[in-house]
Write a protein that binds this DNA or RNA. Structure first.
Lengths: 221, 221
DNA sequence: CCGCATCCTCATGGATACTG
DNA sequence: CAGTATCCATGAGGATGCGG
């Protein structure tokens, strides 16, 4: 690889830069925030160390990412450039396209909760209910991810202690192919329905104009 | 390549299917319409014949494309499945991301006018002026591509003989990094400004609320 | 001719050991 | 810890062959 396609076409030139194996996954990791070499290696199980080092050099040369001095002053941190950050949209689009591939579940593949911080906004961006604030938790394998709606979409991060309106239920739309499928059902530690109605969550995400009752005490199990 | 990443992540699974070299370029060609083996080969200069055959098999197995019997009944035509067609969005997003890479011009790379039928909608979709009908021509290397606004965006195709409102000018926004940069300026056969004002075209695309005068007789040179 | 399959060579990726 | 060096396996590129 790494050989150019030699075509004056936007797609071909984009792939000249990020089309090599591992490259987009490296960008994925950095979209979650700047990272050290070791953190990248952990999030990219199976990558050879020489490959990772080479790819980081390539992507730096291309202007997708940059090396920064970490806080301690002598170690290096990798971070996306503004242009590199703009890969968020193509990556989100690929994540949306991949949903049929996610339905069957992990089937032995590695899973990291942090990836939900990419997948869930990709699936639900622009689908947040207008004018209402909703906080939803996704509980997977003992770890909790919290979705908080805002004006422009959905923030995803660790739980901040506020009361949840709901925890994602397996019968909910696509996210659950993701969240519940991520691990076996037994691993999903909390399956809470909003006021006992599994369709309520779907309403929250799919019908922004509708106004279902907010659960006043939606709690984690 | 072709080895799975082994990650339960939408991006990784998407790349398991379309991440191999050439795959997205094959999809690009098929987004322009169903094609024969030979046509694909022509649009993918440099691909080895066995590779193309192998990739087509892979993508068929994955459900991205399908073989169809051509009109003559005994030759084969390749066409995207509905799911494969949905790769349009990720590809458009990558095309938009690539604009900085297109600005320097072709620099010896191959260019095919048909690629504009992908690039221009990618760049201008959802930017068509609301409520007005605009027909613009892009003239490159003796070939004319016509953009016709409609309700949902922009149609791109061969000229249909109707009067053009304008022909894309080199100083216009991104499209001209593309259209004029695609070949040397000498090859661009028509550079027409709307009523002599090079900024008018930019207004058409960038300011849908504005209402510049339509050129009553915008013509090709 | 078109639509591939085979064969060969070389660049690239993968795994692991090693080093500043 | 953050890479580099090394070696082997695999995939890409190119030429050619072959059946329909």
């Amino acid at each position: 690889m790494s050989r150019d396609y030699g075509q004056y076409c936007g797609l071909a030139r984009a792939l000249d830069v990020v089309g090599d194996r591992w490259n987009l996954l490296i960008v994925r990791q950095l979209l979650l925030g700047p990272a050290r070499y070791r953190e990248l290696r952990d999030g990219l199980a199976g990558i050879a160390t020489n490959l990772l080092a080479g790819r980081l050099r390539d992507l730096e040369t291309a202007g997708v990412l940059e090396r920064r001095l970490a806080d301690d002053g002598n170690s290096v941190t990798y971070a996306l450039t503004p242009w590199g950050t703009q890969l968020r949209e193509p990556i989100y689009a690929l994540v949306r396209w991949s949903t049929p591939l996610m339905i069957p579940g992990p089937q032995g593949d590695q899973f990291r909760t942090e990836w939900l911080r990419l997948a869930l906004p990709a699936l639900f961006a622009d689908r947040a209910p207008a004018g209402r604030s909703v906080t939803v938790g996704v509980a997977v394998g003992g770890e909790m991810v919290q979705l908080q709606t805002n004006e422009s979409g959905i923030d995803v991060g660790p739980p901040d202690g506020r009361t949840l309106d709901a925890v994602l239920h397996t019968e909910a739309p696509v996210a659950l192919g993701l969240a519940a499928g991520a691990l076996s059902l037994d691993d999903v530690i909390a399956l809470v329905e909003i006021d006992g109605d599994p369709s309520a969550l779907r309403m929250i995400f799919d019908a922004p104009t509708a106004s279902p009752e907010r659960s006043p005490r939606g709690q984690l199990l």
